[in-house]
Computed example of a mutant assay.
Amino acid sequence: MKNIKDKKIAIIGAGPGGLTLARLLQMDGFNVNVYERDTDENARPKGATLDLHEESGLAALREAGLMDAFMANFRPGADRTRIVDQHGHIVFEDNDTQNREAFRPEIDRGPLQKILLDSLAKDTVIWNSHFETLKPEGDSWLIEFKNRNSVQADIVIAADGAHSKIRPYITPIKAFYSGVTVVEGAVYASATASPKIHTLLNGGKIFAMGSEKSLIVSSKGDGSLVFYTGCNTTENWANESGIDFSDKHQVINWFKNEFSDWDAIWLELFENASTAFVPRPQYCMPFDQSWETVSNLTMLGDAAHLMPPYAGEGVNMAMLDALELSRCFKNEDFQNSQEAISVYEKQMLKRASETAELTMQSTAALHSADALDFLRNIMTVE
C-alpha cells in the first residue's frame, strides 16, 4: 500500500504475535511501536515451551530473517513425547526426531521473546504501558494508558491476548466456555525436586490421560518443568470450589480427591511446586464469528481467535496472523488500509474457524474415556 508507511502503527501487546508483526513491518520501513503493560521483558514467569510449525510460526520467523537465531536457541529433543496412562505407564513414545515427517522444534518462551526483541530497533517496545482506553480522533486513535501517558496512532493492532481490552472496540462477540478448566503449576530444578517425573519426562513432554482427565508436563531449558491438569468442570468452578490456589496443601487435597484413581507418582509435582497454582478456565471464540472491518483497527492472536491449548496452535496462529497482516500492509495492490485489513481478517477468520473447531474436538476427546486411544492415533498418523 502506497501511503501506509507514513502512518504511525501501534501494536498493543508484546507477545510473540505482536513482536513478530513489529519485526516484519520494521524490515520494510514502517513506523511501528509496541506498547506492553509489563515493566520489562523479565517481569513475569514464562510458561510452557512452544512447538513452532513449518507452515506458521517457522514461516513467520523465516520471512523475518530470524531462522539462524532460532536454530541457535531451540531445544533439540524437547519435542520428544511420551503418552502415559494415569498410573504412569508409557503407552506410546515418540523419540524419532531425526526422521519425523513434520519438524516441530520446541523453544522456550523466554529465548523466543529475546530473539524477537533483539531484532527490533531500539525503543520500539514501550514498557509499562498498560492499555486503558481508545478514543477516536479524526482518522486516528488516542490511546490512553494506566500510567496516564497517552499516544496518538493512525492504525492500532490488538495483540493483547485472551482478555483483550481492545477487542470490544471491534466486536461484541465473546468467547464461550470449553467445558474444561486447567490448574497450572511449575517445579524449579525438577531433577532434584521431582526426580521421578523428571526421569519420566526425559527432557520432553508427558501427556497423561485417564478417567476423563489430563495432566500435561513440559520440560524447560532452565531445568524447570511446567504442568497443567485438565478436568471437565462448570465454568465458575475455580471461584465456587472454595479452594485457595495459593495454598499448596489445599490444592494437594483437591488433587488427591479429584485424581483419586491416579498413581501417587503425580503427587510429586504438587508437593514440590515452586509457585502458586493458577486455575484457568478454557474458552474458545465462536466458529462462525465475523464483524465489519474497521479501517484503522484490527487484532491478531488470542485477541482475535482464543481457543484452548489442546492442539498446540495458539502461538503458531498468532505468528501466522502477523505474517499475513504484514503482507497485506505491504501489498501495493490495495488502495487503503480498509481493504488491506478486510482481506487479512477474512482469511484469518476462515483459518481460525477451522482450527478452533478441530481444537474443540481435540479438547473433548482428550477429556473422554477414549483419550489415550485418540492421542495415540494422532501421534501415529503424524
Rank of each mutant, 00 (worst) to 15 (best):
E184Y: 15
W141F: 11
T133N: 14
I155Y: 01
W141I: 02
T192Y: 14
T181I: 07
S178M: 10
S194K: 05
A193M: 13
A153P: 01
I173W: 08
N149K: 14
H130R: 13
D160Y: 02
L134C: 06
E137L: 07
P136G: 01
T171I: 04
A193N: 15
V183F: 02
S164P: 05
N149T: 09
F176V: 11
T124D: 05
T181N: 12
S164C: 04
F176P: 02
I126T: 10
A153F: 03
V156S: 12
H163I: 02
V182H: 02
F176H: 15
V156E: 11
A158N: 12
G161K: 07
Q152N: 13
V187Y: 01
N149S: 13
A162D: 03
I157C: 00
S178Y: 11
Y177V: 05
V187G: 00
Q152T: 12
E132Y: 08
I173Q: 12
N128S: 14
K174N: 15
P172S: 10
I166D: 02
A193K: 15
Y188G: 04
P195L: 05
A186H: 14
S194D: 10
R148S: 12
S194Y: 04
L134K: 04
G138V: 03
V125I: 11
R167Y: 06
Y177T: 08
S150I: 01
K196H: 09
H163P: 04
T192E: 15
A162C: 06
V156N: 10
E144N: 14
I166G: 02
R148E: 14
V187M: 01
I173E: 15
F131Y: 08
S140V: 00
S190T: 14
F176A: 10
T192H: 12
E137H: 09
T181L: 06
Y169R: 04
A191L: 11
I143D: 09
R167L: 05
S190R: 15
P172M: 10
N128K: 12
F131S: 01
T124A: 04
S178W: 10
N149A: 09
D160P: 02
G161C: 08
A158R: 12
K135Y: 03
W141Y: 14
S194F: 05
I166F: 05
L142R: 10
H163K: 12
Q152R: 15
S140P: 00
F131D: 02
D154T: 09
A162V: 05
V156C: 10
S140G: 03
G161T: 05
A193Y: 05
K174E: 15
K135T: 14
L134Y: 06
R148A: 08
T171Y: 03
P195Y: 06
W127V: 08
E144G: 07
T124S: 04
E132I: 02
I173H: 13
S129Y: 10
D160G: 02
K174H: 13
I143W: 11
E137I: 06
G138D: 07
W127Q: 11
K174I: 04
I170W: 01
V151L: 05
I173T: 15
Q152S: 12
V183P: 00
F145Q: 07
T181C: 07
S150D: 11
N147E: 06
F145W: 07
E144P: 03
K196P: 00
A189G: 08
H163N: 14
Y188F: 13
I143Y: 11
Y169Q: 09
L142E: 09
G179V: 03
S178C: 08
E137S: 12
